[in-house]
Design a protein around this nucleic acid. Sequence first.
DNA 1: TTGAAAGCGCTAACAC
DNA 2: GTGTTAGCGCTTTCAA
Lengths: 356, 356
Amino acid sequence: MAKARQDGSDNDAAQRRVQMADIARLAGVSTATVSRALNHSPLVSEETRRRILELAASLKYSINIGAQNLRLKQNRTISVLIPFDRKIHQNLTDPFLLAMLGSLADALTEQGFDMLFSRIATDELGAAAAAPFDSGRVVGIILVGQWGRHQQLNELAARKVPIVVWGAQLPQQLYCCVGSDNVSGGMLATQHLLEQGRRRIAFFGDIELPEPAQRYRGYCAALEKHGIAVDPRLQVSTPFLPIGGSAAVETLEARAISYDAVFACSDLLAMTAIDSLRAHGKRVPDDVAVVGYDDIDQSAYFHPRLTTIRQPIGAAGRALVAALLALIDGTPAASVELPTQLIVRASAGEERAAPA
Amino acid sequence: MAKARQDGSDNDAAQRRVQMADIARLAGVSTATVSRALNHSPLVSEETRRRILELAASLKYSINIGAQNLRLKQNRTISVLIPFDRKIHQNLTDPFLLAMLGSLADALTEQGFDMLFSRIATDELGAAAAAPFDSGRVVGIILVGQWGRHQQLNELAARKVPIVVWGAQLPQQLYCCVGSDNVSGGMLATQHLLEQGRRRIAFFGDIELPEPAQRYRGYCAALEKHGIAVDPRLQVSTPFLPIGGSAAVETLEARAISYDAVFACSDLLAMTAIDSLRAHGKRVPDDVAVVGYDDIDQSAYFHPRLTTIRQPIGAAGRALVAALLALIDGTPAASVELPTQLIVRASAGEERAAPA
DNA sequence: TTGAAAGCGCTAACAC
DNA sequence: GTGTTAGCGCTTTCAA
């Protein structure tokens, strides 16, 4: 097994990594001077600095960040955690996560921070999530999705672990949360379907989880506003996984109730649902209109093109990072709800006119 | 701007991070003993060890990895780089990358390594790619895609930077490369289309890049084997981006030549191509059969379901990590070509019988 | 079985 | 301007 010596010195012919003392010796100065020169201190003569910089460049020397961090008691690394369910440890597959990861990478880079990326089992969201922080590996944690681990997250926050979570705001929440406005997202989607004349709208999403739960609240509110009773048989709890959409369609079919629309809690669910609906001989949107959530790239060229609720992904990354950096600075960071937007495409569109 | 003190001490009320000396004092022993106890050295009495471990657990103490690494001159972090084109810095969007990232994360975790993830501009693939290694931040680098920076990568390898690249094997290649067998992947796809009776097969992919170039070689080989001349007008160079597929279809249409099939160098390209073909009134697969590459999850529920060349993503991550760890150990690591597999689905399927 | 002391590569007083 | 020195939090001889 790899020992991972920094200089790869398991190799017989390994050359020692060049360090500050080498530069100092070659330049005929002390390491203090080298340090100053490399850190653009004004306390070095122009001539000395030039000589040192040249030497360093020619030897491809670059300051050992580990040692520097230790000495300075600083660190510019953030842990980004994407949870997975241990029972079904499967490929990372929802494109929304990729977009989020990219957005976070950009926002962190912009602020001069590095990203330590790992997947983590949802049942370890307590202590294990904080491990890289406790060991001084990172100065803060960004968690993508709260996954019903509200209590554990509260405990971390109470312990002053700097953590920001992508998810839904909940009562008695001690940790900082950034997410989209799920209630109004759910309302927008449902309202749109109602305006298209749909009356039997199914809801696909695990309402045990905070985000789907809030979207469901928006869904219920929209129905009630239109004087339509919420039919619990139209709600199907299904996981955020590729099989989720088809599983939900099967469940719904098994219940043998009529429905003319689906609001799915992610585009991934919407897409697999549409695939299953097609297999059941139902046309989208003619027989069943479908609205998704996220507005991942693929929604624009899926067939039929997906009507969906857009989450502002670029803003999400920036907001998460900004909140975390504030926390790290010791400033209490308020939770953030980002606006959502209805994107109308073919899967539930303008095509249909008045109520059926 | 965040200073990112490790203890968040910008906060007035910040408590100092607990460290080994604290445990030692509280336990009435020296730090040496604490260190031994924490590292399961046999040189500590059972009683002392227990006391120390308990104390550490109750204080949520965990060894400062930075200091430990410095002292031990070790490090268990790997840099994973996903390049982007600076001219069109856009969202991370190809689901294949997400699957690759997940696969790498799993393989690294399995080996007890952390992943430092960053995006990098393709024009910085030389020096900037090695920066985290030169600064001792990581002990090795995994680069996803070589992006025509063959020369720069060779220079890194010549400098003994431990780097493994996901991509295609090239002549005079000094760096270690792991990839799928692109030539036979291209052949499999083209052969399948030929067997479906297609004769005018378009090729979508930038043949300036190594992987598409090899797939194109496979494509040409298959055509020649069937006695069909390669028509260069059927080859369309298009980037690995969401717009790539539709751009390629537009180009092809503008050339006003006939075609009855498309082999696209990624599923993403295939999907956006299909979307565009549909807009042009062409049915898939009836008018134009389409084969993609990668076999991302979505291919299985795209409409029509996508026939594609599967790259073994789980094996890919493990092979990349294994090769890199070998390099770090000082063992020269041979490049690897993973097998590909034709996955037949509806976009170019068995439905069609004999040649038209 | 434990402790004292040196040192990993770097920075920052402090002295000159 | 530059060097000397102490020390960041840890591990590991060496001595007891």
